[in-house]
Design a protein around this nucleic acid. Sequence first.
DNA 1: TTTGAAAAGGAAACTGG
DNA 2: CCAGTTTCCTTTTCAAA
Lengths: 155, 155
Amino acid sequence: MILGDLDKIDIEILRLLQDDASLTNKEISSKLHKSIATIHERIRKLKEQGYIKRIVAILDRKKINRNLIAFSHVLLKEHTAATLIAFETEVSKFNEVMECFQMTGAHDFILRIATRDMEEYHEFLRNKLATLPNITTVQSYFVLSEPKSHTAYPI
Amino acid sequence: MILGDLDKIDIEILRLLQDDASLTNKEISSKLHKSIATIHERIRKLKEQGYIKRIVAILDRKKINRNLIAFSHVLLKEHTAATLIAFETEVSKFNEVMECFQMTGAHDFILRIATRDMEEYHEFLRNKLATLPNITTVQSYFVLSEPKSHTAYPI
DNA sequence: TTTGAAAAGGAAACTGG
DNA sequence: CCAGTTTCCTTTTCAAA
């Protein structure tokens, strides 16, 4: 037991699926030297127990014209529970917002914003983000390059 | 043609698969009112042409004890091509580093770091990140909560 | 490109070891 | 945990429109 309920085989399955979820049970079974039935049962449980949340396709953002990724650091005026929740709720509705994190430290939230280009980011900022009440400042930093990009957690 | 080579059906397929790549061709075909063979052929091309980079499992990070996510803002001393590449190469080798972005603005790189807890982050910082040459400062910000978390690009 | 249909292969469920 | 079996479903291929 390395990780709660999970043994080494579960961990290996999760590693493989984080990298390539289109592997068949047969392929996994031969990689891990276990039977197909075992792999099938393990994966069923891993999904049922919520270790695997979802299976998704990762797109090439350049090819779909999401050329600009920004990290927007947001500072709010007030930090009451109500204003925090209101901000989170409203900002999550914008489809340019891929991720929203409440943070420790110098800023209250970091947003990951995906847009076609700077013009679209500018519009997002003026017409969407900056219209939300209770914002003090937004500092925008833009991605120049992405030397490493993974959705897989180290386990 | 909304997006280069892609028509509305391709876009819809990409939307669906970004959300749930375990949909069968049959399910997609009935959602989009096209034949299974058409959907199959479209997806084959979307993969071949590189729109779909990979299919991955997204895990519940709390359940696998990656409880702490940090955004580490790194400032380097020098910005020659060689030192930038050296930094990118070395930092990408650390498995705690899920993503590495070269940025415009106040800092050179933003790293997304996943660790079990603050102690493990501290070890990562002392024994790995801070040992790299050419670093001036590392500012660490930690995720308190994740109100929105998506891998899907708006298309 | 799209389609329906056929062939091949994998998933799911079950047995018994 | 595994091997085998049966059934069902999905993927893959293909000829035709």
